[in-house]
Structure formats: C-alpha cells, structure tokens
Amino acid sequence: MMDKNQQAIELMKEQKYEEAAGLFNAIIEENPQDPVGYINFGNLLLHINDSERARRFYERAIELDQDAATAYYGLANLYYEASDFPAAQENFLKAIEIGLEEADAFYLLGMTFFHQEQYKLALPYLLRATELNPENIEYLFQYGLSLAQSEHIDDAKPIFQNVLELDDHHSDAHYNLGVIALYEENLSVALDHFNQALAIQPEHALAENAKTQIMNVWNNTEM
C-alpha cells in the first residue's frame, strides 16, 4: 500500500497536478511539522513553473529542518532555472555539504561555475558527476568542455573520445576533437571531425566555419 506522499508523486508523474496538489496539501495539514510535505509540494510547484510559491515551500521546509538537503536542492534548481547562478551555487553546495550524494547535484553545481566562465572551479564537481554516473553523456561532455576551456587540452581529448564511444552521433564532441586536432596542427584529422560534425548536424555553424578556414589554408598553400 503506497503512502500519501508516494501516491502524490505518482499523480505528478501522470501529470495529474491538481490531484497531486490536493494530496500534498492534505499531507501538510496532517503533519505541519514534517518538511517532506513542503519539499514535495515545492517540487510540484517548480515543475509547473510557479517558482515564487515553490521558493516559499522550500524555505518553510528549511525552517523546520536546517538539514533538509532536498529542500536546498529544490531551491538550487529554482535559482538555476532563473539563471541566478550564485544563489544556485550556494544552495547546491549546502545540499552536498549536508550529504546529498546525487550526480545531478554535482553536475548542476559544476554548471553554475561553467555559466559564470569559472571553468577551473567547475572541474571537480563535473568530475564527481561523471564518477557517480559514468554513462551520462551530458556530464562527460560538459566535463570535457570545461577541461578544454581551462586549457587542459590533453585531458579533454580522451573525454570527448569517450563521449563518441557512448554516442558516435555527438556532433559537438566531433567539433571539439576537431578543434583539438587544430591545436595539434593535424589539419586532416581536424577536417575529418568537422565533416563528421556537419554530417550529423548540417547547420553546425562552428564546424562549417572551421572547415572553411582549413580549406582556405589548403587552397592558399596549393597556389
């Protein structure tokens, strides 16, 4: 027999949001001192883009329990979606400090640094996300990108290759391997990667520009 929280979460999954809200409301009325009801209601409100009310529910959960890691995580997601990366960062950090060992929390924390162009600070969190979920292509790719942006080109290369092992149709991994090949002054390998990126995604403007530059170099060399 499912408890009311589980029932409400199932209703959310079925997109029966009004029914789920009614159930979460009943849970809170029955147990007004239990933060779980507020956190779940906050998650529902965030899901339907009522972020202001969601914030109030998360904050109420934290008032009831300073160590409610998932309430901080909910707040962090709320701020992340609003592109308030410093506030998101603070709350992801708090959730992790309390003990939330979720790959997604480390990934999003890393991405708060990435979006602020603090690539080196992003690295340990993105690395941890890939350790917790090594099959997640997005985690791997963003980790590789942060390595490249931090000028750790030699470390980035095998990460992008790993991305292609998991998904050989990842146009951005091909593009970045092409850029690395340019750094290595290997124009033919670079061109091959740019061509593959364009075969997968014909409108890939960066790959198109890079390919054009290589062709110009070759054409000028042949003159």
Rank of each mutant, 00 (worst) to 15 (best):
H152T: 02
A21K: 15
S150C: 01
S51Y: 10
N43F: 11
A87N: 10
E203K: 12
A190C: 07
F106P: 00
D168Q: 14
L46M: 08
A71H: 10
G74P: 06
M215C: 01
E59A: 04
H47R: 15
S83D: 05
E30L: 12
A61R: 04
M223H: 14
A54P: 06
Y17W: 14
Y143V: 01
V163I: 08
F41T: 00
L64D: 00
Y175N: 11
M111F: 08
Y38N: 12
L191M: 14
E90K: 15
E90Y: 11
L166M: 06
Q33V: 11
Q15M: 13
E203T: 11
L11S: 03
N176R: 12
N25Y: 10
E165N: 14
V217D: 02
D155F: 07
R56F: 09
F113H: 12
L121K: 12
Y107R: 02
L206C: 00
L23M: 14
T70R: 12
M12V: 10
E131W: 00
N49P: 01
P86V: 03
D192A: 15
D50P: 03
T221G: 00
E117N: 07
A197Y: 07
A210N: 08
E52M: 12
Q7V: 06
E165Q: 14
A129I: 03
A61P: 04
D65N: 15
A88K: 09
Q196M: 10
Q196H: 14
K94F: 02
L64I: 06
P124R: 03
Y17T: 02
P158E: 02
A69D: 09
L93W: 00
R56Y: 11
P134K: 05
A190I: 05
L164F: 08
W218F: 15
S51K: 13
V189E: 15
I98R: 01
K94T: 10
L109R: 05
E135F: 01
I48K: 06
Y38C: 11
V163Q: 11
T130F: 03
A207S: 15
E30D: 14
F24M: 07
I96W: 05
I9E: 05
L75Q: 04
V217S: 07
I200T: 05
Y119S: 04
F92Y: 15
F85W: 13
A122E: 03
G99Q: 03
E30N: 12
T212F: 05
A207M: 09
F24I: 04
G99C: 02
S146V: 03
L108N: 15
R60G: 07
N5Q: 11
L126N: 01
L93E: 06
Y72H: 14
Y139N: 04
G110N: 04
A21R: 15
G42V: 07
Q118H: 05
M223Y: 09
N25H: 13
A82N: 04
H115P: 01
Y79G: 08
D155L: 13
T70G: 02
P86T: 02
S146K: 09
Y38G: 11
A197H: 06
L187N: 10
I180H: 07
W218N: 09
P124L: 01
A190G: 09
L108A: 04
A129D: 04
L164D: 03
T130M: 00
Y183S: 12
E30C: 01
F160W: 11
N136F: 00
